[in-house]
Amino acid sequence: MLAGLLGGLAFLFSGCSVFSSPQNTFAPAGEVAHDQRWLFMLTMWFAIPIMLFVELGLLVMMIVFRKRRGHEALPKQVHGNNALELGWTIAPALLLMAFVPFVVGGIVELGNTPKDAVVVEVNAFRFGWYFGYLAPDGTLVEGDPSSVSDPGPGLYIPLGKKVELRLHSADVIHSFWVPKLAGKTDVMPGRTNHMWLKGDRLGDYAGQCAEFCGLSHSLMRFHVKVVTQEEYDRYIQCLVTGEGCDEFSGLSVRAAGD
């Protein structure tokens, strides 16, 4: 029954229209977001039965043990039960400990940047983003910045490749978040944070700043475009030489809302 419930939940989140969103964490398009959803659902296997037990337990007790008219006898005075109480101290503790390997494993996996990753420089400022790439000759080339009204060219990443993001902030704390590809990492001023992600499906994925950064925080949106290796190479070529950019220019004027 539980499996059905959880499966139904996952289905609803990915299928039904009120449950669909370009930023839906339940419709992952990359390895990191996929693993994160899996781990969240794993937690639900533990959390939902306990929730049902408590909520239904309370409801049943309210009905069964309610004071009835003409029923004046007082209940037996139970002061406690050490064995029972030790049980519900130790059992949840052991159950919870079962999560530790997943937690630590996940932290280490996401914390260690893959060695063969494509490196991208992410720059955040109030209120926009721009992205820098390594050209074949090792120099840094940068795309145009986004702004509150212009979504900019977005971040291009090659399909199926692990991409290391180096996060830099020019002013206050921001947070880089593309829900369908990976959970967020804060972009701190004065230090470089790292994260990695991988796009497993071609597409255009919405992201936005997830750390409150002032007046137009809500409008600090951006896009990540998962493209084929060839298209990625052509984009880098466009940034380096300024040629062949026509196929990319149309994208930058698309509304941020799609």
């Binding site: 959803r37 639900m44 929730m51 999560f99």
Partner: peptide
Amino acid sequence: LTGVTHSIVPSDYQQQDT
């Protein structure tokens, strides 16, 4: 229980600040 889901750090990267 939702608090416990925050302790699952890797998946909390998705939920933090939402």
